[in-house]
């Protein structure tokens, strides 16, 4: 058994933005669930507040696996110490676009920008780098963004 080659599990990085828009945590948990069911290993990177919201929402860690600090994740990927197969960046402000562009430049992952919030069209227009944009006006109710994600089904791509 020990000598049997094991298939490498695909990995996905979820880059969380500022948690001030309520849908982020719910959508992150939903996406983690879908990715896990599809056989991918999700890893979350965010600032302290965004990460803590997710961990507190899933105390028994049924969904959330590895969680790392956002600056540390950028450092690890920049230094080529770690990379992922897919990367989902949560975008609802200019900083989110900036992080998405950064991930596109430093990572070899297939990049998805999840754009939401009150001004989602304004933010989506700023994305002029290669990535799949999944956008919906979702602030308090996550369903419009969930629907947009389901249409793309990035866990199956």
């Amino acid at each position: 058994m020990a000598d049997e080659p094991t298939a490498k599990t695909s990995t996905a990085l979820l880059v969380l933005g500022c948690p001030q828009v309520p849908v982020q945590t719910g959508i992150a948990l939903y996406l983690i669930n879908r990715l896990k069911k599809a056989g991918l290993t999700p890893v979350v990177a965010g600032n302290k507040a965004a990460n803590t919201l997710l961990v507190v929402s899933d105390p028994d860690r049924h969904y959330v696996g590895e969680v790392i600090d956002l600056d540390r994740a950028v450092g690890l990927i920049s230094d080529k110490k770690r990379d992922f197969d897919r990367c989902f960046v949560f975008v609802h402000n200019d900083a989110g676009v900036t992080y998405a562009a950064t991930m596109g430049a430093i990572s070899g992952a297939k990049l998805y920008a999840l754009v939401y919030g009150e001004h989602f069209e304004e933010q989506a227009k700023k994305i002029d780098f290669p990535c799949t944009v999944i956008a919906a006006k979702a602030v308090h109710n996550p369903l419009p963004l969930k629907k947009a994600i389901d249409e793309v089904a990035p866990w199956a791509a």
Binding site: C18, N47, T98, T102
Partner: peptide, 27 residues
């Protein structure tokens, strides 16, 4: 590790280095 939309401009003014730093909640 600086982040941003490439290219990222770093300013130099004598011995001063001017660089961008992005925070998710504060731009």
């Amino acid at each position: 590790h600086v982040i941003g939309l490439p290219p990222i401009a770093i300013g130099l003014d004598g011995d001063f280095v001017i660089f961008p730093y992005t925070k998710p909640c504060h731009g």
